[in-house]
Design a protein around this nucleic acid. Structure first.
Lengths: 161, 161
DNA sequence: CCGAACTGTTAGCCTAGACTAACTATTATA
DNA sequence: TATAATAGTTAGTCTAGGCTAACAGTTCGG
């Protein structure tokens, strides 16, 4: 479903958890479609995840998360959510792209940055000081900037010396 | 120098470019130290990068970027810079962590998101509407939030349904 | 100018993940 | 119930990257 070339263990757990919310039983084919990966890759991944006690899976049977697997999946989903909201709601990135970027980045950001980002998103969208103006302000600024992207890049470069 | 377990081709190009700024000639050992990777890994990486025409390197000699290699390296450094500034200046993340996160994420974010993030950083730090207040506002908010982090997380969760 | 010390390379092996081709179970339908 | 279709697995390969051990070049000091 979501286009990706390579999926990590965490992606599998996340996919299984999401599918579980949508359908009563999770099967290899569903995971395969969702992650854009062939079925043998899913089988292989499930083997490893089984060994690590994160999923339960008997040959030709359904796939389930263990409590530990579920815990991790939920953590990943939380990270995904934070990133997705930042990209789509704060940066106003197209939903499709925001999903893909969130998928890729969700495994790599440190907990520190992630937590801080969560607070930041919360802050920006809540705007406690009562200035939701800033959001419109950014959109305006950003659209203007589309024309002289180069200029902005150059300014960034200079300031960073 | 920067702690990392696995480095991508782009990391090598970036490291070479950075080292080049610091010292007249770049050698395998320097790259190895900088990326926290053993020397044979560097040799192997240089082979591939040579095949792709991104670096020039003769056995036991110095390492140089080709024009194309330099172009890519500069692009990566720009991405790194944008991410680092966002993390350290906007989110106020510790410099060490910000560097590491930027290193990991810089290869994965889409150009769209990256450009938008660059503009966002510019906007936030420039604050065209003349409200640098917001920055202090976030710091305050964020410190308060440290105590009831859980609560914030929960609120995020609810809203995302 | 020769050997010690350092630098770099090769060879061989490991891990994560993905793929195809071919085989085995299961399900469903005539 | 037999057989076709679908689902899942196995086996064998591939790629990117990393590592160690052992070998080969270079350089520097005596």
């Amino acid at each position: 479903m979501i286009s990706e070339q390579t999926a990590s263990r965490e992606d599998y757990l996340e996919a299984i958890a999401k599918l579980r919310e949508e359908e009563p039983s999770v099967r290899v084919t569903q995971i395969s479609k969702r992650l854009g990966v062939k079925k043998p890759s899913v089988t292989a991944a499930l083997h490893k995840l089984s060994e690590d006690g994160l999923v339960k899976h008997r040959r030709y049977g359904v796939v389930e998360l263990t409590p530990e697997g579920r815990r991790i999946a939920e953590e990943v989903m939380r990270r995904h959510e934070v990133l997705f909201r930042f990209l789509s709601e704060v940066l106003d990135i197209d939903g499709e792209i925001a999903q893909e970027d969130a998928c890729r980045v969700e495994h790599l950001l440190s907990p520190t940055s992630l937590d801080r980002l969560a607070k930041f998103v919360e802050f920006v969208l809540t705007c406690p000081k009562g200035q939701p103006v800033w959001h419109k302000g950014f959109k305006y600024y950003s659209e203007q900037g589309e024309r002289d992207q180069e200029l902005v890049a150059r300014r960034l470069g200079e300031e960073s010396q």
